[in-house]
């Protein structure tokens, strides 16, 4: 078993605008099982950050507990990281974000960490619209404790050694939509062509961007009776759209039929080109997204792609009108403005 990767890289490795190669975005060698979907998601995050020329030291990775939550070690080795208590990543992310709004926050969680022990935290992070990317690596199984069903296991889905699940699953995309998430996407670890641009779009989004990624557990749940297996996803996956993240106002690619491409302008001036595969869907409508998910579900299809986006909302800092300066940069002068300022403030309430 290898615990290190050779230090050599391809001599012609492309460089991004910062002069970095993808190597500069790598982390330690994964200790997850061979073939784990989570590793593909790590690779997709690396690729997305590399392509967007994100400065690694301007990123904070946050996670809870579980197989998924181990993965921040395996990407962006030059970024900040916080591996929190089980299910408590949203609180830590909220705190960090409040203290310094200038970093990019990438939260990585799993179905157990999000939909079971962390549910109470997750829902509040969503409704507060914290400016972060929240990726749930969803394999429908508690891999780190040997493969018990999780809260997202589909009704009737059966893992390698289990019985068919008797419970209704929690649909994290639907829940996020109902709680007011401003960016919701569903994807599959085995389809990087779709996943990488979705992550880029989520990073460009201002506000809470939720990506549920079906990520097969090869050890406990990659069997024909499971709805979160590679084969099942390949046979049942449907896309509402494909997305291109465009850093500047480039031409819309012409491979798509006229009228099927919708351009969404992000707050930082970048663009998303959404190539609609489902003509009925209105990307700005929660109701449309929820209905479509139900419709596809009824046909045993898993709807993927960007389901909903609201690029015009205010994120938590804007709602709370907090200072733009990171807290650590505030000096005593700003923090203790003196008796006069206090008096002035008190007078407002008199």
């Amino acid at each position: 078993m290898s615990y290190t990767v050779p230090s050599f890289r391809h001599p012609n490795l492309p460089r991004n605008e910062l002069g970095y190669t993808s190597k500069d975005y790598e982390g330690a060698v994964s200790t997850l099982c061979a073939g784990c979907g989570h590793d593909s998601i790590s690779a997709a995050i690396i690729d997305a950050c590399f392509q967007m020329s994100i400065q690694p030291h301007r990123v904070a990775k946050l996670s809870g507990i579980g197989c998924s939550s181990k993965t921040p070690t395996y990407f962006l080795g030059n970024s900040h990281g916080f591996n929190s208590v089980h299910g408590r990543m949203p609180s830590v992310a909220t705190g960090a974000n409040m203290a310094n709004r200038n970093l990019l926050y990438i939260g990585v969680s799993g179905d157990g960490d999000t939909a079971s022990i962390g549910m109470g935290q997750f829902v509040h992070a969503v409704r507060r619209n914290i400016n972060m990317v929240y990726i749930c690596e969803n394999n429908g199984v508690y891999g780190l404790t040997k493969g018990q069903d999780s809260a997202t296991t589909d009704l009737g889905s059966k893992s390698k050694k289990g019985d068919p699940s008797p419970y209704e699953p929690i649909d994290l995309c639907a829940l996020s939509l109902q709680l007011g998430a401003t960016f919701v996407a569903n994807s599959f670890s085995g389809d990087k062509d779709q996943l990488v641009p979705i992550i880029q779009a989520a990073i460009a989004h201002k506000g809470f961007a939720f990506i549920n990624v079906i990520s097969p557990c090869v050890t406990f749940n990659n069997v024909s009776s499971s709805t979160k297996a590679y084969d099942y996803m390949r046979q049942h996956m449907a896309s509402t759209n494909t997305v291109d993240y465009v850093p500047t106002a480039d031409e819309i690619t012409t491979d798509y039929q006229e009228g099927t491409t919708e351009r969404v302008t992000m707050h930082d001036g970048s663009y998303l080109n959404l190539h609609k595969l489902e003509a009925q869907h209105d990307i700005h409508s929660r109701r449309s997204a929820l209905k479509l998910m139900k419709d596809y579900g009824a046909e045993d299809k898993v709807l993927t792609g960007v389901l909903f986006i609201d690029e015009t909302t205010q994120e938590l800092h804007e709602i709370m009108k907090t200072t733009k300066t990171p807290l650590r940069n505030l000096t005593e002068k700003e923090l203790c403005p003196g008796a006069d300022a206090l008096e002035k403030l008190n007078n407002q309430f008199r």
């Binding site: 061979a34 073939g35 670890s189």
Partner: peptide
């Protein structure tokens, strides 16, 4: 099974 592990 096209899990991408080798590519990654």
């Amino acid at each position: 099974i096209e899990c991408d592990a080798c590519v990654d």
